[in-house]
């Protein structure tokens, strides 16, 4: 997996370049003369986080002369996504952008797309590196792991007993984050104990049940790290139902709409994510650059209104974690 951070130099460059965002002399520029077809394929249609990406992408498509299509499978399965990819190949799309249900199973289909001259831009959850032209990583894994830990340990204390509530045992991105959580804990808060790891299968009801069970079976748990949209909602609902608000704290990776009520009631003090709408815009911007052949494997570019980004070995880190709390959550609607 690619773990990288933007260097300090990159940040300085970003600042310098963002002064003249539209006509930056340096870095890749899109050529919007030719109209192109770009598809965005989420893990499944019907989840708000992916819908937020779509919202940003639609806005960006207008400016970039792009025919935009948001389409995906009805179940979060590789088979569903592959079927959609195959149809996009047959329909001669110029760019396929996707967040993968799993990194390995999608690779052959996306490699066929690349062979057919289609550019592939992965975002959110990566595919195997040989099966995409670029990958837009939400945030770096260590940074997100740190944000997850801090947003619970700050309130639960440096010697807390905590639990992890994830989606499934083999979820790639969740496992990366959990790994980052564990290494950050070991380095910074060695007294914190992880007493249970449960899985909610990305189902709100199973996550709720798992959350209730964790809290009942381990009454001494004071923090739940739930790095999955359904899991954090389940954990928060469990804390609220048991009347443990203010005694147990949870955090996760969820869109603000889904956790707004829990952030306001104090069940969740802080929860990190990133700006999904903005990320959707960046995805389309990179798609345009890729279609124009304007982006090299190692490069920099400035997207108007988004900022300056560095491409390192085909990977673009979108942003630092964006931590929602009671004071800022109402600024974000997705």
């Amino acid at each position: 997996m690619n773990r990288r951070r933007r260097s300090l130099g990159g940040a300085a460059l970003a600042l310098a370049l963002s002064v003249s965002p539209l006509f930056a002399a340096d870095g890749a520029m899109p050529d919007t003369a030719k109209r192109i077809k770009v598809a965005m394929v989420p893990k499944l249609v019907g989840l708000s986080v992916f819908k937020a990406n779509e919202q940003g992408a639609i806005a960006e498509a207008k400016d970039l002369n792009i025919d935009f299509l948001y389409t995906g499978p009805v179940t979060a399965s590789a088979q569903g996504q592959v079927d959609v990819f195959n149809s996009l190949i047959a329909r001669k799309f110029d760019v396929i952008t996707t967040t993968s249900n799993n990194p390995t199973q999608l690779a052959p289909s996306l490699e066929r797309a690349m062979k057919a001259g289609i550019k592939v831009v992965a975002y959110d959850s990566d595919v195997a590196p040989q099966a995409r032209d670029f990958f837009i990583q939400n945030t770096s894994y260590p940074a997100f792991g740190k944000a997850l830990v801090e947003s619970v340990i700050k309130y639960a204390g440096p010697d807390a007993k905590i639990a992890i509530l994830s989606s499934t045992p083999d979820a790639t991105i969740q496992n990366e984050w959990i790994g980052a959580v564990k290494s950050y804990l070991a380095a910074t808060y060695p007294k914190v104990q992880i007493v249970a790891t449960e899985y909610g299968q990305s189902s709100p009801s199973q996550s709720l049940t798992a959350g209730l069970n964790i809290l009942q079976a381990h009454p001494d748990v004071t923090g739940i790290i739930a790095p999955d949209g359904a899991a954090v909602v389940g954990a928060a609902a469990a804390i609220e139902k048991l009347g443990k608000t203010g005694k147990v704290f949870t955090t996760g990776a969820s869109n603000p709409d889904a956790v707004r009520q829990y952030v306001k009631s104090g069940v969740i003090k802080e929860t990190p994510l990133w700006d999904e709408v903005k990320e959707g815009r960046l995805v389309l911007y990179v798609a345009r650059l890729a279609a124009d052949g304007a982006l090299k494997d190692n490069d920099t570019f400035t997207a108007p209104g988004l900022g300056t980004y560095e491409v390192k070995d085909k990977v673009i880190v979108f942003s630092e974690p964006l931590v929602f709390d009671a004071s800022n959550i109402d600024q974000y609607k997705f």
């Binding site: 088979q79 390995t104 199973q105």
Partner: peptide, 15 residues
Amino acid sequence: LASYYDAVRPDMGDV
């Protein structure tokens, strides 16, 4: 399917 996907997953047969 394993050959087609060049990978296996424990839920790959569900569909």
